[in-house]
């Protein structure tokens, strides 16, 4: 079993135009920085990116947006990304906005082999358009379909050579659900360790979900809003 690859460039091999990608992270927290840089350098285009946000104008997925490598975004939140909002309003970018919990569950369900499920979020709103509505326990629910991606790209704190992953603090966010839902899942990790170095009781993502893993280099881990006690 060989899951360890040299770097991001090797990890994203096989990602071609018009593919669907999932990218973990919330804002700039827990995003796969190395892989995003490699995608920017690769000039791959026409991508559908499933990611809660789209980075900021000059970091994270914002870099791919700026180079118009993304055809469609599937996200829950645009705010604070001027270029994302501009491309959305001008129609240059196709955008599907979905409630955050529904997005997370659609990824998790995709990885778990559940094709669709009912949730109350979005009933009576434009999110419900075209979706089957059904009442359960006196409350209206929408039928939501699960999501899978050609490649899921996640960022973890620690990972071992078998692809077992541990996330840190709120940098877990969408990474855990998305790691399950890639036909190929790439994990970039802050610390790649030998088998047996991680406590099996503490694993968030069991290695079965991960096909490629590499030691990240030069992570900036930029903070979007530094807020301190006054």
């Amino acid at each position: 079993m060989k899951k360890v690859v040299k770097d991001a460039t090797e990890a994203i091999r096989g990602i071609t135009d018009d593919m669907t990608l999932m990218l973990g992270g919330f804002g700039l927290c827990g995003i796969p920085e190395n892989c995003i840089s490699a995608l920017v350098a690769s000039d791959v285009k026409g991508l559908t990116c499933i990611s809660n946000n789209a980075g900021v104008d000059d970091f994270g997925l914002g870099l791919l947006l700026k180079k118009h490598q993304i055809r469609k975004m599937i996200s829950s939140y645009v705010g604070e990304n001027a270029e994302f909002e501009r491309q959305l309003l001008s129609g240059e970018l196709e955008v599907e906005l979905i409630p955050q919990g529904t997005l997370a569950e659609r990824c998790r369900a995709g990885g778990a082999g559940i094709p669709a499920f009912f949730v109350p979020a979005g009933f009576g709103t434009e999110v419900a358009e075209g979706k089957e509505v059904r009442e359960f326990n006196g409350k209206m629910h929408l039928l939501e379909k699960s999501l899978v991606a050609d490649f899921a790209i996640v960022k973890a704190w620690k990972g071992d050579v078998y692809g077992n992953l541990i996330y840190r603090h709120t940098a877990n966010n969408f990474n855990q659900a998305m790691a399950m839902a890639g036909k190929i899942t790439i994990a970039e990790v802050e610390e790649l360790v030998p088998a047996g170095s991680l406590d099996p009781d503490q694993i968030h993502t069991p290695g079965i979900f991960v096909q490629r893993i590499f030691q990240a280099e030069g992570l900036e881990k930029r903070i979007e809003f530094i807020t301190t006690r006054s």
Partner: peptide, 29 residues
């Protein structure tokens, strides 16, 4: 003491209390 791995839903740096728990987005929802 800002930690890039520790933010709130508004993407601001925060801290966590004693007895806190972290989890992924699908668990959160």
């Amino acid at each position: 003491e800002e930690d890039p791995d520790l933010i709130n839903a508004g993407k601001q740096t925060i801290t966590y209390t004693k007895g806190a728990a972290f989890f992924d987005s699908s668990m959160s929802f």
